[in-house]
Design a protein around this nucleic acid. Structure first.
Lengths: 179, 179
DNA sequence: CGGTTGTTTCCGTTAAGAGAGAAATCAAAA
DNA sequence: TTTTGATTTCTCTCTTAACGGAAACAACCG
């Protein structure tokens, strides 16, 4: 971890570690952490040197970060090399991540549940009716979550933040109805 | 996949597959899926037979599901064997999962960010000020998310559901402010 | 054309995790 | 105490992912 203050390396290492728990590989998360706290865009060479990882690894990791949509290519005048920068706004960053995770982790299940529920609907075996009901419950839940995500995604970031931040007030208002 | 209607095996297999994307192993997710759609509690032997996996694997997986808090032991009269049942209410199920994931995936980062931000606060090197600011932004975001989770957790399930379900209406109300 | 940059694709190594099976251990009921 | 069920531990295998290095390739520019 060359040329970085201790608190930065600490953060980068931790972010890499957590990355593995979030389903992205360590290097990918580290590179993202580095770019996120870098004021200027960095080129691939810079990243290699700072993190001490192989060039090919950096190249592939950058590609994955671009697939996620949280890292963009920047061209500096007078320099032919690609430079990379992370989405810098935290709210925007997580909006993208959440949308992407929904696409990968929710939508396939939603499709499968719809299919399963449909198939289940065609059987009338009394033994299967409980399973059928549970699948329908699950499907309903996933539909709801999916709708919620879609609405948050359409919303301007600030409104979404406001909803999250106002969680307690909304809860109090609605609490009476929910009981 | 013995003694199960096609839509059930389909669901169990898919849930197992998605489990790997959610960070739990395949067998653990499959067992959970099986228990979730089973009306009666199953014993370890049953699970072995239905899913065709090793007994030890079932034992360890059940333990992990109990650690997550989404599977409980049940004792049936006249049967000394442990029986297992999943949390059956979908909303309750995901409330538990989300709380648990927060504990594993958010809280450690929150702690680390607090530490990093504190360390960063002590340096006055002008070169580090951007990184410092980004870390503070990130910390603020994680604090907000954490608070939101805590509030949802304290809330009766129905209120939480109501907030999620009313996402669009709340968005419309707040939309004007957010723009 | 030669030099630089970037991507892609191999290959080989290493590390980590999942999974199965066997045996030892433990606990409680009969 | 004996028996049954459950957990724990250990070992072994298999698979996957990560990683680095090297080379091939394409694109571009001077």
């Amino acid at each position: 971890m060359v040329d970085l203050p201790p608190f930065s390396s600490n953060f980068i290492l931790h972010w890499g570690e957590m990355g593995t728990k979030w389903g992205v590989n360590r290097t990918v998360a580290q590179i993202h952490a580095l770019l996120f706290i870098s004021e200027e865009p960095l080129n691939a060479e810079d990243i290699c040197n700072r993190l001490g990882v192989a060039r090919s690894n950096v190249s592939n990791s950058l590609k994955e970060l671009q697939n996620w949509g949280i890292v963009n290519v920047i061209h500096l005048s007078g320099d032919r090399r690609d430079h990379f920068e992370s989405v810098k706004d935290v709210y925007e960053l997580f909006r993208i991540i959440i949308t992407e995770r929904k696409k990968r982790e929710i939508d396939p299940t939603l499709r499968n549940l719809r299919k399963s529920a449909e198939e289940a609907g065609q059987t009338n075996d009394i033994n299967d009716s409980y399973a059928k009901g549970q699948l329908e419950e699950l499907l309903g839940f996933f539909e709801m979550v999916s709708d919620f995500y879609n609405q948050m995604d359409k919303m301007p970031t600030k409104s979404a933040v406001k909803i999250i931040g106002m969680g307690d007030k909304i809860a109090k208002t609605l609490g009476g109805f929910g009981k």
